[in-house]
Design a binder for these strands. Structure first.
Lengths: 270, 270
DNA sequence: CACTCATTTGCACGTTTATGCATGTTTGTA
DNA sequence: TACAAACATGCATAAACGTGCAAATGAGTG
């Protein structure tokens, strides 16, 4: 699989140590992770030097070292909306993996929800992406960044959901054709597929799936194997499943056996 | 590998120290880095001289010295993010005064902009208010609170404005009837009335005024008495004007003489 | 012209930094 | 539990660095 290669050009053959560290930080932002061996090859230095760089960057609080490379630290959030961000690190790890499903120039459909806001924040900049969403927090995650076409779906906003749902929102949605959609998952199981808690909400998610070429379900582990009240879509309509690192292989294989491409996120760092 | 040699001409063999430093700065901008050894070869001086130059430039804050050469120091932050945290205390004082214009059970129309987000945050809870807005940050300011009916206006989001504008947004807006609207003001003067910077933005504000029973203009002092490029509405269509505490009485009376109710905010406390 | 003063430059010296390799240890996975 | 990959650490080397000093240059002055 090719790297999207966002804004960052190719690192030059000869790079000064500090310059190299800048490149690493940039790559952390655009790719969500770095692998020591890859960096060593690209900069044409030994892995020892790369490790030294990562150690220094981690000391400055610019990344978190992990076995094999490094990950970006969870970005600081404003204290006002801190309540809404639980499990930030885990969701960012999920989001980074989900962002790798995206291709240049695609039209994305992103649902409301904190996990989906994290996905929006993890999307590569300047790739000609169009993001259609009913969620204000998804828009805000994109506003500070560059190179996105943003289309907002209007309608009555349900405060429990944090986005527009209802008849008007569905009607607006049906004028859209998207390449890939991320319907927020309330629950997911092998037999029933994707579920939602609320009637209006589920109808909106259902519409999302219908107007999208592909559907990617991104779930935290606590939602796997559970059911809810309103059915959204069967597994046959789901092409991608992004799960956390701690999901066991048996579960992953079970979904893979139903023709769902399972993507496993990296370990989360706090 | 050949040097791209972008805009900068070839450094001549004989160059005065200051001249040399200018070239170095130019090269920093175009190449993003300079290597001491390369510079020494091109200017045909010793690396010691180049190092002296770099030391001086770094002292003037024109570059950052690194082992092997120098790098340009990072500049600029996102203008929108910056705008959002400017003059918070003053805007809160304005917003509190603006919130006193609201009556129970009204339908409010709130534009995008940091001042308007502050107004939303200052609205009284549980008064049966309906808030219609095209701005995600206004919605977020209301989501954590209770007793609001929120209606989101969709459409293409302009990142500079931070809200939906354009034909679709205007069309959605025209299905609404509001009691009071708060169009974000880019400029306000006695003759021309209310102005906006952008064409699409101004058309949307214009539509806001047309579907609202009353219009309230809330402005920070720096926008008073100035004009912009696109006209939104004349003073005859503006019923309320909320200004900061430091606006002089003559100005307030001038607006009052044109049948605009002028409301003066309390002093801001930082 | 002789002299001074300021500036710039290159060189020699000792110091700091970056790097790769060898060592033994830790970590993730089967 | 076993094993390989990734890791930390110490060490040697080479490059880059800072500092002090002397030579060269040029402008101003008696």
């Amino acid at each position: 699989m090719n790297k999207p290669r966002a804004a960052a050009p190719i690192p030059p053959g000869e790079a000064m140590p500090q310059e190299r560290q800048q490149w690493i930080v940039q790559r952390l932002r655009s790719h969500g992770r770095v692998v020591a061996a890859e960096l060593a090859a690209e900069f044409e230095v030994s892995e020892d030097s790369i490790r030294r760089d990562l150690r220094e960057l981690a000391g400055q609080g610019l990344c978190k070292r992990v076995y094999g490379g490094a990950l970006p630290l969870p970005v600081a959030v404003s204290p006002l909306k801190q309540r809404r961000v639980e499990h930030t690190a885990r969701k960012q790890a999920l989001a980074r993996k989900a962002a790798t499903l995206v291709r240049q120039g695609q039209v994305l459909l992103i649902d409301a929800g904190s996990t989906n806001a994290a996905i929006a924040a993890a999307l590569p900049e300047r790739c000609g992406l169009t993001v259609v969403t009913n969620a204000p927090d998804v828009v805000l995650a994109l506003l500070d960044r560059e190179g996105f076409e943003i289309q907002l779906i209007g309608g009555r906003v349900d405060p429990r959901i944090g986005g527009a749902v209802g008849a008007q929102a569905v009607k607006e949605l049906q004028r859209i054709r998207a390449d890939l959609c991320f319907p927020g998952a309330c629950a997911l199981d092998l037999e029933g597929g994707l579920w939602g808690f609320d009637s209006e909400e589920s109808l909106f998610k259902r519409a999302m799936v219908e107007v999208s070429g592909e559907t990617a379900v991104v779930v935290t582990s606590d939602k796997l194997g559970t059911v809810a009240t309103h059915r959204v879509a069967g597994l046959a309509e789901v092409q991608h499943l992004v799960v956390e690192h701690d999901v066991d292989k048996a579960t992953r294989n079970a979904y893979a056996a139903r023709d769902v491409a399972v993507h496993r996120a990296d370990v989360a760092v706090d």
